[in-house]
């Protein structure tokens, strides 16, 4: 099973190495194209038994994977690992009731981290593997009532339905925004393959560089909320497009949808540069770079 995120990271289970299937990672040799490097085993999450399948959260830093090894309580269990400074942490068993002595795997989570789905062949299902919904309640809450009130309430009105409510507010904030969009020709409305640079305007650093889908013009990345970003779009035969945008903070999860209309290059075409920062140009190479983006 392979999982790819934004064409930037590939995680894969391959037989061999420490025993059974192991988890391998690969990244593009050059970010702008899709040529991937030779996969290397992620030793931190590879046990002496079968490891995988894998699920990489949209934040790109949290991996959920199934394994028969580590401290599994039986069969496959689901584990979590977080990447810090390029290194995956030691796996954490997700514990009961997500894991049981049966096989529990194929984890998938919503971007806001409130819900997840797993496949399990535990007792009580419809047969074979069934899909179960997991609701994360967040940090433990203090009871709103005193113990005596609880006792009285439980006697007066015993709980009949243990089913969880449909909407659950999780206290922990993830501050993740999914930024999705499409690059199209402004006249024909057809999709255009384009190269995009995303810059964090607070630091001035380019944080993402990628190419939109050649067939659909679509792209999708995840960004931290509460920032101001610049987007620069380039495509052969089209005017350079740039603008700034804010990702509001405060929400657990946002989705920003944007359509970028690219203008065909024609003599006399005009362009508005919306996120140009004036800096001293000391070198001829810098000047050439600016001139290359300018259509006279």
């Amino acid at each position: 099973m392979i999982l790819m995120t934004n064409f930037f990271t590939m995680l894969k289970t391959v037989r061999g190495g420490t025993g059974g299937y192991d988890i391998f990672v690969s990244g593009p040799v050059v970010k702008r194209n899709r040529e991937y490097s030779m996969p290397t085993r992620v030793n931190e999450v590879s046990s002496a038994f079968n490891d995988g399948p894998i699920y990489l959260h949209p934040d790109g830093k949290t991996m959920y994977f199934a394994s028969e090894g580590f401290n599994s309580m039986g069969g496959y269990d689901i584990f979590m690992s977080k990447k810090k400074q390029g290194i995956w942490s030691a796996p954490i068993n997700m514990g009961y009731p997500i894991n049981t002595p049966y096989d529990d795997y194929f984890f998938a989570m919503t971007a806001n981290g409130k819900y997840a789905y797993i496949a399990s062949n535990r007792a009580g299902g419809k047969g074979g593997f069934d899909i179960y919904k997991v609701t994360f309640w967040g940090p433990e809450k203090k009871p709103a009532l005193a113990t005596q009130d609880y006792l009285l309430a439980s006697i007066a009105k015993p709980i009949q339905d243990p089913e969880l409510a449909g909407e659950v507010k999780v206290a922990a904030s993830i501050n993740l925004t999914v930024f999705k969009g499409i690059t199209i020709d402004n006249l024909t409305r057809k999709p255009v393959e384009a190269m995009i640079d995303i810059t964090d305007n607070a630091t001035g650093k380019v944080i993402e560089t990628f190419t939109t889908n050649s067939a659909t013009g679509k792209f999708l990345i995840s960004l931290n909320a509460g920032g101001n970003y610049g987007i620069a779009v380039r495509a052969d035969g089209y005017l350079f497009h740039s603008e700034n945008f804010d990702i509001p903070s405060g929400a657990d999860y946002n989705m920003v949808n944007k359509t970028i209309e690219l203008k065909n290059i024609k003599c006399g075409s005009k362009i508005a540069l919306r996120n140009v920062f004036l800096i001293p140009v000391n070198r001829q190479s810098d000047l050439n770079l600016i001139l290359n983006w300018t259509v006279w």
Partner: peptide, 18 residues
Amino acid sequence: NTTKDDISNNLSYNGTKM
């Protein structure tokens, strides 16, 4: 879910499509 094996680890970001 059916009486056979049903498995998934593909979910849309907002959790409305699987």
